[in-house]
Write a protein that binds this DNA or RNA. Structure first.
Length: 849
DNA sequence: AGGGTTTTTT
């Protein structure tokens, strides 16, 4: 009997190990007949995997590290540390060469053979451009030895040793490869940025390292809080690398009383001019508005040979490119935080740091994203200062005093402490990672954020009352969009408007393709009016989409782009919108959904679209209170964003794709809704109460009023309802008292007339029973009818006849009051009282006991 | 009546 050979993991491709172990185990268990053929094929697979390792080992590209880069000074220490430790922290400033050289050093340390060396970057552009550079340095075409993968773009081959990607890609890969077996080494770059992705990834790796002793992890960071990373990974060694920066002198310019930001910048510019009148200046400001204000003041002061350029992420691409094409004179770049991490402005000699930034903070109680302007941390300020030491010695002028700097927090609060965590918690559930409160985050998020995430998942019906993932939740986790938006898609599929909502969800995920340049705001607004639909910004988005599809169909790419630009719409973002739509449509197809075609507008369709969107936005609705002010969840107040098609109309009820608090709380991208939709779709969230029960003599039943609320918003103020189904016991008591005892019932039937006889008959009965010669008083009668007086049996023919005389639907309506009367112990729900009870009226008996 | 930091995804 041939036994399958044992598995030697070290000699096999890591991605094959798990599968081969499983196959071997199955082979050993098999006792049926001849397994030699199966063993042979198993041996073949082992051999193939081992051959692959040998081949990769042989073909390993030679690497040389650039000796001019500061990191090369620690070359040997790093290679050695990688060999000796499972986790290594490399700390170094920009320009040290760590992003490009570390993967090569890992290769030199023998990594990259049994699996890829995976290198993550926070941004797609960086992943691609670093990959290109390293491929060049290794004299290998991009995609061969060195590949990359970002959303919409992948160039990795089976022969790749190094793969650059965004950290989001690794997170997505975990779903299909829980142990990340395709990698034998992971380099997490820019870990100091502490994005949600990075913190989640670090926590995941922390757990994975024990299960994958062969996996090596390298964490790289600016020299910010490296001790924390080291402690987190069980005192992993930290290797510090020099940056290639020049010294930066820091000056503090204390603001005068009543000197606004623009004047402070103006004064700092004057100071820089005195030091070097030709050195380019980068000014860090908190937002677009400040950029505009400062720009106006600087332009007014007509500085010689000076160009003032704005720079922020939403700026049209053409204007952004101006940063990279050097002008003739001096340049002053007025920038937001894009220039701190995402974009490098070349040739900067001075940095002027306002010390301010807009920081996003998620307000859990109101579900509003706040963007307050706040003082930045010391680390962020130092990062900003570093931006002027790239080409020569620089000077940083801080618009606050040194004591204030010292009093500021050392590090920026990590995103996981400030963001909504729905996506993170959903992901953890889908991956079976247990209670998020127990997950090893490097700095665990506050409980209130985790709780809010649970609530939102409940609101979306992604988890049940026991916090288990529902089927819907499982689907949500597979759609690569925000959970609220995923919920919209699921609803849209059921309502037959998937194509439209796919377009909208894609559109909501990208940045608004409509551009509004500072100097052409009115013209832009006018052009955009073409895509305005009264009552719904979403239908407006669809109008823009349709316009673009038609425009593109009829002409060349160039001509279409030109048409878009003429309407102040960015062709690049339209393109991205199309890509995203195509990707989501593909995911939808794989999920087994029918997308169908974009259909012409009609009212029913518009309602189906809006109701689908609403499924994801139940907590982001508002009711108009007065004067354009809306009241939202839990009493939170907001207004409609002025750019919305709804801003003037102010419909009574709206839903908003985003609630953002900037200068004040705004609802952005909104549509009018009907409160009735909420009552139908938010059944799991609405609270309803009934009050003021009263006897309805004409109707012959107990009525009451209902109030319906959602997150404290009143959907229905006072609606008359049949009281019975809500409070059966109380209704029954009232029915007895009014209908039977007092006979307060308007009906032609004989019941009322006979009621006196009924009372008498009862009284006689009572008399016999109690041996007392009195008529029963009202309370005794109630007790009797309620069945609380035992041993009393009475046939109520009159009652039965009256009932018979009613129309069938009337009988049905009265079912609650009357049937509970007949069965005092019966509970609330209608279906507990079969129709038979009504059909058998002749034999109705009031019984007790 | 009046306007937003940044990034990412089987």
């Amino acid at each position: 009997m041939t036994e399958p050979s044992p598995i030697k993991p070290d000699e096999l491709m890591q991605r094959d190990v798990g599968r081969l172990i499983g196959q071997r185990r199955r082979l050993l268990k098999r006792s049926d007949g001849d397994i030699s053929a199966a063993v042979a094929s198993f041996e073949q697979r082992i051999a193939a995997s081992a051959d692959r390792v040998q081949q990769r080992l042989r073909d390993r590209p030679a690497v040389t590290c650039d000796p001019d880069l500061p990191i090369s000074a620690r070359h040997e220490d790093i290679v050695e540390a990688i060999r000796d430790h499972q986790v290594v922290i490399v700390a170094g400033e920009t320009g040290s060469g760590k992003s490009t050289q570390l993967p090569k050093m890992a290769l030199e340390a023998g990594r990259g053979v049994r699996g890829l060396i995976g290198c993550t970057q926070p941004r797609r552009i960086a992943a691609r451009s670093v990959a290109r550079r390293v491929a060049e340095e290794m004299n290998s075409p991009l995609g061969e030895h060195v590949g990359f993968q970002v959303r919409f773009n992948e160039r990795v081959s089976d022969d790749s040793y190094i793969k650059f990607m965004t950290d989001g890609i690794v997170l997505a890969e975990i779903h299909s490869d829980r142990r990340l077996n395709r990698y034998d080494t992971l380099i997490i770059d820019e870990a100091h940025e502490r994005s949600l992705n990075i913190d989640f990834l670090l926590g995941y790796l922390k757990q994975l390292l024990a299960k994958r002793p062969d996996l090596k992890v390298i964490i790289t960071s600016a020299t910010i809080d490296t001790g924390r990373f080291s402690r987190f990974f069980d005192d992993a060694p930290v290797i510090k690398v020099e940056g290639r920066g020049y010294p930066v002198a820091v000056e503090y310019q204390v603001p005068d009383d009543s000197e606004d930001l623009a004047r402070q910048v103006q004064r700092a510019v004057a100071r820089a001019t005195r030091i070097d009148a030709r050195g380019d200046i980068l000014v860090f400001l908190p937002g677009e508005r400040e950029i505009f204000q400062v720009s106006r003041v600087l332009k007014k002061s007509a500085l010689a040979h000076t160009e003032v350029l704005p720079l922020y992420a939403r700026l049209p691409a053409a204007s952004q490119d101006a940063i990279f094409s050097p002008g003739r004179g001096r340049r002053i770049v007025l920038a937001t935080n894009v220039a701190e991490t995402s974009l490098t402005v070349p040739g900067i000699r001075f940095v002027i740091d306002s010390g301010l930034a807009r920081i996003s903070r998620y307000a859990t109680h109101s579900k509003v994203l706040r963007l307050p302007v706040e003082p930045v941390s010391q680390a962020a300020s130092n990062q900003r200062a570093g931006r002027c030491g790239r080409v020569g010695p620089g000077t940083c002028i801080r618009l606050f005093n040194e004591a204030e700097f010292d009093s500021r927090p050392e590090f920026t609060e990590p995103e996981i402490h400030r963001s909504g965590l729905v996506g993170v918690v959903l992901e953890m559930l889908a991956l079976g990672l247990g209670d998020p409160a127990d997950f090893p985050f490097i700095e665990p998020p506050p409980a209130r954020l985790i709780n809010e995430a649970w609530n939102t998942l409940g609101e979306l019906q992604a988890v049940d009352a026991e916090r288990r993932l529902t089927a819907l939740g499982r689907t949500l986790a597979t759609i690569p969009v925000d959970a609220r938006q995923g919920r919209m898609l699921i609803e849209a599929e059921q309502r037959g408007v998937l194509t439209e909502v796919l377009i909208l969800v894609a559109g909501l995920s990208i940045s608004d393709p409509r551009e509004r340049p500072l100097e052409h705001q009115q013209a832009a607004d006018q052009a955009h009016a073409e895509f305005r639909v009264a009552g719904s910004d979403f239908l407006g988005m669809l109008a823009l989409w349709r316009w673009w599809q038609q425009t593109r169909a009829g002409q060349s790419r160039n001509q279409a782009d030109k048409q878009a630009r003429a309407r102040f719409v960015s062709p690049m973002r339209l393109h991205e919108w199309g890509q995203l739509y195509a990707q989501l449509r593909e995911v939808a197809r794989e999920t087994g959904w029918q997308a169908g075609n974009l259909r012409p507008d009609d009212e029913a369709r518009a309602e189906a679209i809006h109701r689908s969107l609403l499924a994801g936005l139940l907590a982001q609705v508002g009711q108009h209170v007065e004067d354009g002010e809306y009241s939202g969840a839990r009493g939170h107040k907001f207004r409609i964003f002025p750019g919305s098609a709804l801003a003037r109309a102010r419909p009574g009820w709206i839903m908003a794709a985003e609630l953002v608090e900037t200068s004040r709380p705004f609802a952005r991208v909104a549509a009018a809704i009907q409160p009735g939709w909420l009552e139908q779709q938010a059944t799991h969230l609405i609270r309803s109460s009934v009050f003021d029960p009263h006897w309805d003599r004409r109707g012959g039943r107990v009525m009451g009023y209902q109030r319906v609320t959602l997150f404290g918003l009143t959907l229905v103020e006072k609606r008359q309802v049949h009281y019975g189904p809500h409070e059966p016991r109380e209704a029954r008591e009232m029915f007895i008292r009014h209908a039977l005892v007092r006979a307060e019932m308007n009906h032609r039937a004989a019941f009322l007339k006979r009621n006196e006889a009924l009372k008498r008959e009862l009284a006689v009965h009572e008399h016999k029973r109690r041996q007392r010669d009195i008529l029963a008083d009202e309370d005794t009668l109630v007790e009797f009818f309620a069945g609380r007086l035992p041993e009393t049996i009475f046939t109520v023919k009159a009652f039965a006849r009256w009932y018979e005389s009613l129309a069938a639907d009337r009988q049905q309506e009265l079912l609650y009051d009357h049937a509970t009367l007949l069965r005092p112990d019966a509970q609330t729900s209608g279906e507990e009282f079969p129709d038979r009870l009504i059909a058998d009226t002749e034999s109705f008996r009031l019984t007790s006991g």
